[in-house]
């Protein structure tokens, strides 16, 4: 029994923002300070003349004022805005630091041009990309997510099936293990030239590469999960009349799931890397391609904008997987004792 429980695979152990928000009733000084800093940043953006004139300086200043207003709202209403307010309160120091960061960035780029000019975009330069080029960026995100979803899905399914098979069947393990040992550690991107040659389209080749990158960690972790199932579980189930089918699907797989999720997380990480490389070198769509395209035009602001979007995309996908895991493995949670 303890064998499974000790398979502690918690990734998301960040303190709950709501729990650590400061008690209501006291004035939220951090928030007041952060709001002032955002107003100051807005003033710098609006009133300090730019060396290189760029559009959307006004819009950026308005955004900064809006952030200050939001902080002011949370400050004024106290705990009445629920979870969002608690979240903002928790990240109050971050809001303050971000305002300072924005101000310094603004001064170094747009106001004084201290950083080499085409390579370091100003904040309003990046805002300009989002305002003028959102359609192309959005389409790129869509392409990336679709490609990743296809590859990841096939990779996860194949990896899971292979892992269960070799974990369960000695014969399958005998034949598959050496192949895994030889080919598994090879980075999926090493297959890139060959796969673009073999597959009919760069799209299907990319799906294959992403699937390959995902499948290896999922296979290994599923396999180790199945192999480390407490033998007594099988004995218990057998004396209770379990068939082979029952032993696999109702004993081995549920017991191995914490390991499987570790594999799924690792697979997701590697699949991001392969996705970007595949899009840069083969597929003519997606965020990887957008980066490449922006570089071709020396549109550095577009690159920063795309990088930010990519970071948000990857982080959101990881968060989604966390949520799924927390749901599926909810039995691992909690230490309540009667």
């Amino acid at each position: 029994m303890t064998a499974i429980e000790s398979n502690d695979t918690r990734f998301s152990t960040a303190a709950s923002p709501a729990a650590s928000a400061r008690p209501a009733g006291r004035t939220w000084w951090t928030g007041a300070f952060a709001a002032l800093l955002w107003l100051a940043a807005a003033a710098v953006i609006e009133f300090w003349p730019e060396i290189i004139p760029a559009p959307y300086g006004r819009e950026l200043a308005i955004l900064a004022v809006l952030v200050a207003a939001l902080l002011g709202l949370v400050l004024a209403t106290g705990p009445f805005l629920g979870k969002t307010a608690a979240w903002i309160r928790y990240y109050g120091p971050w809001f303050a630091v971000a305002a300072v960061g924005l101000g310094i960035w603004e001064v170094l780029t747009a106001k004084l041009a201290l950083l080499p000019v085409p390579f370091f975009a100003s904040p309003q330069g990046i805002l300009e990309v989002y305002i003028d080029d959102w359609a192309r960026l959005g389409e790129s995100v869509l392409h990336s997510v679709l490609l990743l979803a296809k590859g990841y899905f096939f990779g996860a399914v194949i990896g899971f099936t292979t892992g269960v098979t070799i974990g369960w069947s000695r014969a399958a393990g005998y034949w598959v293990h050496p192949i895994l040992r030889l080919i598994g550690p090879l980075p999926a991107t090493a297959w890139l030239p060959l796969s673009f040659f073999i597959f009919p389209s760069s799209g299907s080749a990319s799906v294959f590469l992403i699937a390959l990158a995902t499948a290896f960690p999922v296979t290994i972790l599923t396999w180790s999960g199945i192999a480390s199932v407490n033998r007594d579980y099988y004995d218990i189930a057998r004396t209770l009349g379990a068939s082979r089918w029952f032993l696999i699907f109702k004993v081995a797989i549920p017991a191995a799931l914490p390991h499987v999720f570790v594999g799924l997380f690792m697979g997701l990480g590697t699949s991001f890397a392969v996705l970007v490389v595949a899009e840069m070198l083969g597929v003519k769509a997606g965020l990887g391609w957008y980066l490449q395209w922006a570089q071709g035009w020396a549109a550095y602001a577009n690159m920063y904008a795309a990088l930010i979007v990519m970071a948000l995309m990857c982080s959101s996908l990881i968060t989604i997987l966390f949520r799924i895991r927390d749901r599926v493995l909810s039995w691992q949670k909690g230490l309540v004792r009667w």
């Binding site: 029994m1 007594d232 004396t239 017991a255 493995l329």
Partner: peptide, 16 residues
């Protein structure tokens, strides 16, 4: 066979 059941020293409940 389910007509002969073994109870272990550890409860060995399925934690999930």
């Amino acid at each position: 066979d389910p007509s002969r059941i073994l109870v272990f020293q550890d409860p060995t409940l399925f934690p999930w």
